[in-house]
Computed example of a mutant assay.
Amino acid sequence: MTLNVALFGAGRIGKVHAASIKSDPRAQLVAVTDVMEQAAAELASEHGIAVRSADEILNDRSIDVILIASSTNTHADLIERGIAAGKAVFCEKPIDLDLERARKVVASVSAAGKPVMMGFNRRFDPNFSTLKAAYDAGDIGKGELLAVTSYDPAPPPVGYIKVSGGLFRDMMIHDFDICCWLFGMPETLSATGSCLVDPAIGEAGDIDTAVVVLTYADGRIATIRNSRRAVYGYDQRLELLGADGLLSVENQLETTVRKATTSGVTSAKPQLFFLERYMRAYEIEWGAFLDALIADAPMPATVQDGVNALALAEAANISLREGRPVTITAELTGVAK
């Protein structure tokens, strides 16, 4: 069984997903669409596929799957149009920048009964997934303290910042998802943040440095640290302390060579950016989507997961703005606790 796949978006992430689709023999990339005609033409030429309009793709019954890697403001509409056209859907995070709109998408997906998966690629990183498997197996007992570190090597252009939805929705949303994946939804959230890296980011109404603390009803605590600047590379670490031990994920380095002399011990820097760090995760993620789709099994990252992470981002914005902890309620997530 080979599934025909059409790609929405021929930008940086679209190119990553195109490579993942081509790497799995169970799927065949057949078409791409993008508002940037040149980008679509270049990707189509690279992969030997057609450039088609969104309407042509959605109306083509031979296309089984659409993969949405276009701009965030298109995600919600394309998910709904895709399921209405009978397609299975894979969509990059986030569902939308507006939480209410995202909750409506959950309702649409539930009513349609079509398979939809959200692209939270870090769940599929071999290091993080190995940690979760060990934790779920009880290797360190009950989890007590979770610490997630995510620092970018440099901030994106201010033009991107202005349309990104802000650090919590754009950058930390991955870390919110990791906390939910490991610990579930918290009871309260407290956020603090500032602009230390680039004054222009502050002038655009955003922050570039933040810490969030999530507290759980049973006393567990999770902390997230984000910065838009780590001059030494892409810093991605996780530490989970349990009653019977510790699980941790360290950075992936440019090389594994370490030099030890009388002057000291040195090693390589972390890999430079997310495309290097998580390329394998994108491939595994796509394979997991196909596994679930072919087996008619639950998707490993759902639209509700997307809403949950976005709800925590919304709570973080409220906490930062009002200087107080925020209780995570059903009004935020759309799901009663």
Results as ranks from 00 to 15, higher is better:
1 M>F: 15
1 M>N: 01
7 L>H: 09
8 F>L: 12
9 G>R: 04
11 G>Q: 07
12 R>N: 06
13 I>S: 07
14 G>D: 02
15 K>D: 14
19 A>R: 07
19 A>L: 04
22 K>S: 03
26 R>V: 02
39 A>D: 13
39 A>R: 05
40 A>G: 13
44 A>D: 12
44 A>Q: 13
45 S>H: 09
46 E>F: 00
50 A>D: 14
50 A>G: 04
52 R>T: 05
53 S>P: 10
56 E>W: 01
62 S>K: 15
68 I>M: 04
70 S>H: 07
73 N>E: 08
74 T>I: 00
75 H>N: 04
78 L>F: 05
82 G>T: 05
87 K>G: 09
87 K>V: 13
89 V>R: 10
90 F>Q: 03
92 E>Q: 13
92 E>Y: 11
95 I>H: 03
98 D>Q: 14
100 E>H: 11
102 A>G: 15
102 A>C: 02
108 S>W: 03
109 V>A: 05
112 A>T: 01
119 G>I: 02
119 G>A: 05
122 R>H: 07
123 R>A: 06
126 P>S: 15
131 L>R: 04
132 K>I: 04
133 A>G: 06
133 A>I: 09
142 K>G: 08
143 G>F: 00
147 A>T: 08
147 A>F: 07
148 V>I: 15
148 V>L: 15
152 D>S: 09
153 P>L: 07
154 A>T: 13
157 P>V: 02
164 S>V: 01
165 G>L: 09
174 H>K: 13
180 C>D: 12
182 L>K: 06
182 L>P: 13
183 F>H: 14
185 M>L: 08
189 L>K: 01
198 D>L: 10
198 D>E: 07
199 P>W: 06
201 I>E: 10
201 I>G: 06
208 D>P: 00
212 V>P: 01
214 L>F: 03
217 A>R: 06
222 A>V: 12
223 T>Q: 13
231 V>H: 03
234 Y>F: 15
237 R>S: 11
240 L>H: 07
245 G>L: 14
246 L>H: 06
247 L>I: 08
253 L>A: 14
253 L>P: 12
254 E>H: 06
257 V>D: 04
257 V>P: 03
259 K>R: 06
263 S>F: 09
264 G>Q: 15
264 G>S: 09
265 V>F: 07
270 P>V: 12
272 L>F: 05
273 F>D: 15
273 F>W: 10
273 F>S: 03
277 R>K: 06
279 M>S: 07
281 A>G: 02
283 E>I: 00
289 F>C: 13
292 A>I: 04
299 M>K: 11
300 P>H: 10
303 V>N: 05
304 Q>D: 06
306 G>I: 01
307 V>H: 03
308 N>W: 13
314 E>H: 10
314 E>D: 09
316 A>G: 10
317 N>Q: 13
320 L>R: 02
323 G>W: 02
323 G>C: 03
324 R>T: 04
325 P>L: 01
325 P>H: 07
326 V>K: 01
326 V>G: 00
329 T>M: 00
332 L>Y: 02
333 T>P: 00
334 G>W: 06
335 V>W: 00
336 A>R: 11
